[in-house]
Computed example of a mutant assay.
Amino acid sequence: MIEGVLLDYGGTIDTNGLHWGSVLWKSYQKYDVPVDRETFSKAYSYGERALAIHPIIQPGHTFLDTLQLKVEQQFQFLKDNGFKVEDAFIEMIAADCNHFAKTTVAQAAPILKELSELFPLVLVSNFYGNINSVLSDFGIDRYFNAVVESAVVGVRKPNPAIYQLGVDALQLPAEACVVIGDSYSKDIIPAKETGCKTIWLNVQGWEETDTKAPSVADLEINNFTMVIGGINGLNGH
């Protein structure tokens, strides 16, 4: 029986299964930023590495701040590689993507509220040290009993140790916990290695390898609204 829930944040709660690379690329296209997808993908990866290595994002930064800093890093990569991109696009893309995230989180909030009334919830996220500010800004911080954030605990997915920290926070056996996440490689596989049940929000990846091997997820869904029904199914209800 499932007694506790571990939730991913980015790509799960804030985009309903879309990878953030896909969300940002769509905004680049919307504003006709003159780069191709392959180049954008390199800029995206560069930006993620920069934010992971350097203390660019501070604990008090909102998600809009985060997006602006993220896109600034991407644009720096593009400029360094000879692309002529206008800085005015940075604020436009950040605002566009923040609106998308805010809207998606608002749609997820009733599900989180209902989940929190049924189970203790722990957030397990690869994030930049400001996830609590983001949760507060979006009005969903109250639904989580604890937060395990990679920049704070010093462990990143796909290391199963970060999910073990989540299990420890729930004070439950791993087999009584379910992990819900959008990334097969960063959520589902390490969660299974930890001994948890898993629900894979399988919507749209970005650069993850499609191995064609059978999924080890206990359940696959294609919309965050399906999570409560999914948990009930795992519990035989």
Rank of each mutant, 00 (worst) to 15 (best):
H54P: 01
E149Q: 05
Q29W: 03
A106C: 01
Q171E: 15
G229P: 06
S22R: 13
P214L: 08
Q58P: 00
V23R: 14
A217E: 08
D218Y: 15
A109G: 03
I231D: 13
M226T: 11
N159T: 02
P173D: 08
S215T: 13
A161N: 00
I13V: 14
P158F: 01
I13Y: 06
G154M: 02
H54Q: 14
G47K: 04
L78G: 03
P160T: 00
D210Q: 11
G129D: 07
V134H: 05
A213T: 14
W206D: 13
A176D: 14
E117G: 13
H237W: 15
A176T: 07
G17Y: 02
F119K: 12
T194N: 00
G154F: 03
G154P: 06
D187E: 05
C97W: 01
G10T: 06
F75C: 12
D32H: 15
S150F: 02
V179G: 08
K157C: 02
P59E: 04
T198C: 06
V167Y: 00
E117L: 12
L64Y: 04
Y184F: 10
A94Q: 00
G129W: 14
Q107P: 02
P160Y: 00
E149T: 06
A169S: 11
A94C: 01
D14K: 11
V216T: 09
L24D: 08
M1F: 03
H61G: 02
D218H: 13
V23M: 13
